[in-house]
């Protein structure tokens, strides 16, 4: 039973690494794009939010699984 807590903690950390790398790459891309074309800022922000929301969705699946492990 204690192993479930360990698994939940490790899983949460690994999920956060994945989400962090993914959202970091999106942020990098969006900032570079905004720097090149400042007039397209609002469209870039919208598509950045959409992609970030997709990554966040996958990350949250992982977090929910970890949460269920931790409260089992």
């Amino acid at each position: 039973m204690e192993m479930a807590y360990l698994a939940a903690g490790l899983g949460a950390g690994i999920t956060a690494i994945g989400a962090g790398v993914g959202i970091g790459i999106i942020g990098k891309g969006a900032m570079e794009a905004t720097a090149r074309q400042p007039e397209a800022t609002s469209e870039i922000r919208t598509s950045m939010l959409i992609s970030a929301a997709f990554i966040e969705g996958v990350a949250l699946f992982g977090q929910v699984v970890c949460f269920i492990l931790a409260i089992k």
Binding site: Y5, G9, A16, G20, I23, L49, L60, Q63, A70
Partner: peptide, 22 residues
């Protein structure tokens, strides 16, 4: 904004594990 949120989710899970252990 969104990186802040993923950080805050990380803290969340840390806190949960910490809380439940204690």
């Amino acid at each position: 904004m969104t990186p802040t949120k993923s950080l805050y989710l990380t803290i969340l899970l840390l806190v949960i594990s910490f809380t439940s252990v204690l």
